[in-house]
C-alpha cells in the first residue's frame, strides 16, 4: 500500500513532507517529556525492525495480495515513538527495496504514522475507562490495531482516488482501487488480532512495556 514515486502531484508530495516534519517535531517533543526518553528506544527499535520486514509478508486475498503493515501495532505499543519508528522504517524500505519512494516518504509517513498515534490514544482509552482486565485490553488492542490500519487505508484511498491522471481510464482505475481497498478488510482483522495477541502477551510477561 506504499505510494511509489511518480503517482502523486508535487503539491501533495510537498504537503506530505510538511505534515511529516510537523508531526515528527511534535512526537519528539512528547518523547522528550518522558522522564527517561531513552528507556523506550530499545522497544521502538525492535518494533521498527518488525515494521521494516512486515512488508515482505504477503497475504493473498484473491484476486490481489496485500502485505502486513503493522502501523496499528506500533502505535498501540510505542505511543509517540511510533511516528519516528515508522518514518525510519519507511526510509529503509524505500532505499533498500524500492518499496514506496523517497519523494513520497512524507506522504507515506503521514499515511501510516498519524493513524498509529491515533491508535495509541484509542488504546489509552481502555485505561481511562478503568477497565484493566485482559478482555477489555485485548478488545481495545484489537480495535487499535485494526483501526490504525483502517484509517491508513482510508487516507490511501482518498489520495489515489482524487489523483487519477486525466489520460488514463478513470473507471477502470477506480475499480482496481476499490478492489485493493476491500482486500485490506481481512488484513485489518489479521492485524487487529495480532495486535491483541502481542499486547496480551506483553501484559502477562512484561507489563511495564505497555506503560507509557
Amino acid at each position: 500500500m506504499h505510494i511509489p514515486d511518480g503517482i502523486l502531484p508535487a503539491s501533495i508530495i510537498v504537503a506530505g513532507y510538511a505534515t511529516t516534519g510537523g508531526v515528527t517535531w511534535y512526537s519528539l517533543r512528547q518523547i522528550k517529556r518522558d522522564k527517561n526518553p531513552q528507556a523506550n528506544i530499545p522497544k521502538a527499535s525492535l518494533l521498527t525492525a518488525a515494521f521494516f520486514v512486515a512488508s515482505w509478508i504477503h497475504i493473498p486475498v484473491p484476486p490481489v495480495s496485500v502485505h502486513l503493515i503493522l502501523n496499528g501495532l506500533l502505535g498501540t505499543i510505542l505511543g509517540y515513538y511510533a511516528f519516528p519508528a515508522i518514518l525510519i522504517g519507511l526510509f529503509f524500505q524505500a532505499v533498500m527495496f524500492q518499496h514506496g519512494g523517497l519523494s513520497t516518504l512524507g506522504v507515506n509517513a503521514t499515511m501510516f504514522g498519524i493513524p498509529a498515534i491515533l491508535a495509541y490514544h484509542l488504546f489509552r482509552l481502555c485505561h481511562k475507562v478503568g477497565k484493566n482486565n485482559s478482555v477489555w485490553t485485548g478488545m481495545f488492542a484489537f480495535l487499535s490495531g485494526a483501526g490504525g490500519l483502517g484509517l491508513s487505508v482510508v487516507i490511501f484511498f482518498l489520495l489515489v482516488i482524487t489523483n487519477i491522471p486525466a489520460n488514463i481510464d478513470a473507471a477502470m482505475e477506480r475499480n482496481v482501487i476499490y478492489g485493493l481497498v476491500l482486500a485490506h478488510i481481512p488484513l485489518m482483522l489479521i492485524e487487529g488480532a495480532f495486535t491483541a495477541a502481542v499486547t496480551l502477551f506483553l501484559m502477562r510477561v512484561k507489563p511495564e512495556l505497555l506503560k507509557q
Partner: peptide, 19 residues
C-alpha cells in the same frame, strides 16, 4: 534485510546498555 534488521537490533542493544 538481515543487515537492516541487525542495525535495528544493534540500536536496541546499544540503548539497553545505556539503561
Amino acid at each position: 534485510g538481515a543487515t537492516g534488521v541487525w542495525g535495528f537490533i544493534g540500536t536496541a542493544l546499544f540503548f539497553m546498555r545505556g539503561n
